[in-house]
Amino acid sequence: MSKLSIEAVGKLFPARGAAEPTRALTPTTLAIADNDFITILGPSGCGKSTLLRIVAGLETASEGRVLLDGQPVTGPGADRGMVFQSYTLFPWLTIIENIAFGLRERGVSERERLEVARKWAERVGLKGFENHYPKQLSGGMQQRTAIARALANDPKILLLDEPFGALDNQTRALMQEMLLGIWEREQKTVMFVTHDVEEAIFMASRVVVMSARPGRIKADIAVDLPHPRPYTIKTSAAFVALKERLVEEIRVEVVGAH
């Protein structure tokens, strides 16, 4: 049985005033196996965020349903951790308190909370910044914290919506390696949205390509590159071949949308 099954999930945003209703997502079916790292690749506006938000329970599907471990998703919950593109750390909490936020919601004792939060701060490379406030940190560090905050909750699945979209290339590459390293060690089910082809291949065990709006799945490609994946793999022949194929898939969509 798959970890997460998305069964004919679609989304129609209702009309607002004179505007027509928006079809953001045509009914989409997707099954994600345990410990899979799925990246979702698609042009802007194709419904990637919408799909992820439906899985998170932040948005309700207009049709279809989402099952996590066979249980239908009815609303947001700690079993599906999410990292957003915008910086969503709580500005009034320190880094360590941010990471411990979910544990506190669950009523974990303060000692245990701090222990887990410290461990995660260290794993994402934030040692020494535990007592800083978010505004004192760079964008990359804030996203590290957001990842640690989601993982400290030990969710069944981690959802990431273009988490590195606002970062510069060097930082972005470092963050990709860090997240991949965590995934290789911890074994997590991950759904990662991006519009960067290289990022999609580097991270994924499977790349799902979506068509332009209204989005639907147009290709589902397994990435058989070995693990652990060093950064240098991006220049290997297998990687480049995959990249060429995906770039073409995406290009057709973007051109078609204009």
Binding site: A56, G57, G81, F84, F90, G102, E105, N153
Partner: peptide, 18 residues
Amino acid sequence: VRRDLVDAAYTLGSSDGS
């Protein structure tokens, strides 16, 4: 309040009250 902060809290397991 910023909408995405509220969303983040929900995905971390917050109830409506919290």
